[in-house]
């Protein structure tokens, strides 16, 4: 368990560093586009393409961190209204299983995208960068969605155990 915790901490740092890097590059590239237009008269083809590649990674890293921290927008009044610990545990178990199931479906969709990308590879229009470089962000993200979904299921069952101990 402690080892998993360490891996998670490490990954969290990696995600945050990557969020910072992609944000800086994305902003820098778009800003450079504006500057180059005024100082060099012409804008470099492909600047926006690189900026959107950074953006896509940023989007997915943001999604992953939000999933890790369970910070996705949620309507929580049902959760708030359940006070009995045991009922709450059952509620959390059911909810986490639903999310986990849905995340498996999303993983399936992502695998279809990967299969298609391997069957018919594509490149970006201006720079000819393989599209898979961008799509990889979404593929990785969905793997983490499933992982965090599974983690939440385990946690929810843990809730049941601690309650049984206390009762």
């Amino acid at each position: 368990m402690q080892k998993l915790q360490k891996i998670d901490d490490f990954l969290f740092v990696v995600f945050n560093v990557m969020i910072i890097l992609t944000s800086v590059f994305m902003t820098g590239l778009v800003f450079f586009l504006v500057l180059s237009r005024y100082f060099f008269g012409s804008s470099m083809i492909g600047t926006l393409e690189m900026a959107t590649i950074c953006a896509l990674w940023l989007y997915m890293l943001g999604c992953m961190v939000a999933s890790r921290n369970n910070e996705h927008l949620t309507v929580d009044f049902l959760e708030q209204s359940i006070v009995r610990p045991k009922l709450k545990a059952y509620y959390e178990i059911s909810k986490s299983i639903i999310v986990f199931g849905i995340s498996l479906f999303v993983l399936y969709l992502a695998s279809e995208m990967l299969a298609w990308a391997l069957k018919r590879p594509q490149t970006t229009p201006a720079l000819g960068i393989p599209l898979l470089w961008q799509q990889a962000s979404m593929l990785i993200a969905t793997v983490f969605f499933v992982t965090y979904g599974f983690r939440d299921v385990i946690r929810a069952f843990g809730l049941l155990k601690t309650n049984e101990g206390s009762e």
Binding site: N16, I19, I20, T22, S23, V24, L58, Y59, M60, L61, G62, C63, M64, V65, A66, N69, E71, H72, L73
Partner: peptide
């Protein structure tokens, strides 16, 4: 700020 903005962006993008 950058990290928080990234997370906020992520929650919107996922929807």
């Amino acid at each position: 700020s950058i990290v928080k903005a990234g997370e906020t962006t992520g929650t919107i993008i996922m929807i």
